[in-house]
Design a protein around this nucleic acid. Structure first.
Lengths: 168, 168
DNA sequence: TTGACAAGTTCCAAAAAAGAACTTACTATC
DNA sequence: GATAGTAAGTTCTTTTTTGGAACTTGTCAA
């Protein structure tokens, strides 16, 4: 499968990764969540080529994850800010942080602490089910066909590849 | 910055992405979380080259995210199973699913439903703070220097790039 | 008028991924 | 015991993506 095809996969993970699943986009978003807004700041922090950065910022803009707010005319310069859609990526960032803090921090411990702005207490993010309030446990989760599946499975190619994974 | 350098960044997100941040690894893990274990099954489902798949499975194995369990001798064949460390990536997968279900599902709705195995109720994952039980809100989170930061900032190169982002 | 800057764009070289054929170490079958 | 089949790779070549450096545009500032 080509990378450019995965946005058509009948899978929310694949579709999400088709936008943010490349090497740099989540790091751009990390910086955005830390308050960064300007092209040059991203460029200096990430030390990637302007070419690549232009491409990724435009991609995030095209997908409505960042929007451009002019901060100067003649020439027009934009800030890149998170949209509501973009801000909802925060749980993804936080779960990445949490796993990294636990498994990738060196002997010195994690480089940044995430604390509650009001209480100053360290945050311990945990994924729970909104209905029951119980932590989501992998063994507790069951996959069922959803409304968007039937259409996708009309394509025999998809059926061939997905059959093994799908709930019967 | 080169991709191969990001594992040395003083940032848990960057370090985590140095393992799972490429185009295919999270899709491999998605399949693993759906119960997939064998090389050929991954290969058929993802339709990537064996070369790439070998590389990624070895990488996940090297990092202790998958472990190999022989299911046959002569020749030895292995199953790739999630370790405890690997299973803890589940919240990342679930938050990706959730964002994708909301923002990337077509008109037909999401392709798969995630339900509670016991009750059959749809799961609504939400990230909360384990202490307070309150949903993690981006405006509620404050970044503070952590124990691993000082060592990293001894490198003037890191300081140059990170200064703008760090809490004062 | 000259220099600098922000945000790109163009061009070329280097790295990564794709595709196909080949290899190894078996098992099963005729 | 020759032949075919299979799982998991490996090697080789082509294509795609990324990186690096130089160039462009529109503007401000000295």
């Amino acid at each position: 499968m080509r990378w450019n095809d995965i946005k058509h996969e009948p899978c929310s993970i694949a579709r999400t990764l088709s936008i943010i699943g490349d090497r740099w986009t989540l790091l751009i978003l990390r910086n955005a969540f830390l308050g960064m807004r300007r092209f040059d700041d991203f460029q200096r922090q990430l030390d990637v080529t302007r070419h690549l950065l232009t491409d990724r910022l435009n991609l995030l803009h095209d997908h409505g994850i960042l929007h451009k707010v002019p901060y100067q005319e003649r020439p027009t310069r934009h800030e890149y800010r998170l949209t509501a859609k973009g801000k909802e990526l925060y749980p993804i960032i936080m779960t990445l942080v949490q796993w990294g803090d636990k498994w990738m921090a060196g002997d010195d411990g994690p480089p940044l602490n995430y604390v509650d702005r009001q209480t100053g207490e360290p945050l311990r993010p945990i994924l729970v089910d909104q209905n029951s309030g119980r932590p989501i446990d992998i063994h507790q989760v069951k996959i069922e066909p959803g409304p968007g599946l039937d259409k996708a499975l009309e394509d025999p190619e998809f059926r061939r590849r997905w059959m093994a994974l799908l709930p019967s």
